[in-house]
């Protein structure tokens, strides 16, 4: 009964004011930390440093946006890091061996699309849990990357790709182009999710797939689409990353980057049970993580200590949310992990 009541527009706004949801809590924590750092940390609040923060989170943020699209549709895509690394490295390898720039790009993007489709088809049509599908396809793609299509696991940025270096490796009015790329992706995803029919379908499907099917939405094709979008964003992020560091280390697949991606998405308030959240949530989550890391850098914390403190702060953020919005045993969704 509560849920039907809260869907009425008036009560919804009223509830919003009173209720501190996770996004608001994370945003408040971000503001508090930001203000605290601005006051107590010399060198934090200046343009150079703020740009630094943005640059450091742009790739993570982009991956987060792709992940958010999938998570809103009640899925998860753990293959994003593999899709970020291998197709990008393929493009770079092909370009360095003299293949035409356009063809090299098409090859990389096609590989990414193939895996996006595979993820989508397996989860939507074969009904394999997304967690396992994407775990396996990610592993498979990383395997493909190691079985001969790349000369080495670490591929340097070839000069032949310099015509597209502007997507992440240059600066525009003092702003690194990777930040601009992040902004462009954020706007695109936001428009897609909130202003297009398909975007709204994703929300509906994430909220209740059975209801969405009953109302006649093409549930399975839309699910395929969301993995496709995630794959495309991942390969774009890969190109941005490679152009900004001048190298693509495909061994990044072995690292815990994917956990950080899931983290910024869920931390910002995109619920894993689907249908909730949006671009703003990802940005909030990413900003919080980026700011904490930057502040600790200035505080001269070591890399490991930064991870530790970051983790503890995130844990506190989740715990506060949980205390303020406790789980109701009566209405908790079965199988919602």
């Amino acid at each position: 009964m509560n849920t039907t009541a809260s869907l009425l527009p008036k009560e919804k706004t009223a509830a919003k004011i009173i209720k501190l949801d996770q996004q608001t809590i994370v945003f408040l924590i971000f503001i508090i930390i930001f203000i605290a750092f601005s006051i107590f940390l010399p060198g934090f609040l200046n343009t150079g440093n703020l740009v630094n923060i943005l640059r450091s989170i742009s790739v993570l943020g982009m991956l987060g946006l792709g992940m958010a699209v999938v998570v809103i549709g009640r899925g998860i895509d753990l293959s994003m890091v593999a899709i970020l690394a291998v197709p990008t490295a393929l493009t770079m390898t092909l370009a360095s061996t003299g293949v035409d720039l356009g063809l090299a790009l098409i090859a990389g993007v096609a590989l990414a699309i193939a895996f996006g489709l595979l993820n989508g088809l397996l989860t939507a049509y074969a009904e394999v849990p997304a967690l396992l599908t994407t775990l396996a396809t990610g592993l498979g793609l990383a395997g493909i990357g190691q079985s001969g299509i790349l000369q080495f696991d670490v591929v340097p940025w070839p000069d032949q790709l310099n015509p597209i270096e502007w997507i992440g490796g240059t600066t525009l009015f003092g702003i690194p182009s990777s930040v601009i790329s992040f902004a462009v992706v954020a706007i695109a995803v936001s428009v897609f999710l909130k202003r297009t029919k398909l975007g709204l379908f994703i929300y509906a499907i994430g909220d209740n797939p059975n209801a969405a099917r009953t109302t006649g939405m093409p549930v399975r094709p839309v699910m395929v689409l969301q993995y496709l979008i995630a794959a495309l964003i991942a390969v774009f992020a890969g190109l941005v990353m490679a152009s900004s560091s001048a190298v693509m280390d495909t061994r990044i697949y072995n690292l815990s980057l994917i956990y950080n991606v899931v983290l910024v998405v869920v931390l910002g308030g995109v619920g894993l049970s689907g249908g909730r959240g949006g671009v703003w949530n990802v940005i909030v989550g990413t900003l919080l993580v980026g700011t904490i890391l930057n502040g600790m850098t200035i505080l001269n914390f070591s890399y490991d200590a930064q991870n530790l403190v970051k983790g503890v702060i995130l844990l506190m953020a989740i715990a506060i949310d949980s205390v303020l919005n406790p789980r109701n045993e009566e209405t908790a969704q079965q199988g919602d992990i």
Binding site: S256, Y259, N260, V262, L263, V266, L267, L272, D304, A305, Q306, N307, L308, K310, G311, V312, L314, L315, I318, A319, S322, V323, P326, R327, D336, I337
Partner: peptide
């Protein structure tokens, strides 16, 4: 305690403790 008693989400919580414990291990 976090998941059982405080009612945190298991996936997210253990994801974060994965990172926390990992950095503890690294140190």
């Amino acid at each position: 305690i976090l998941i059982g008693y405080l009612g945190l989400r298991a996936f997210l919580t253990t994801l974060v403790t994965l990172i926390v414990f990992r950095s503890l291990f690294d140190m």
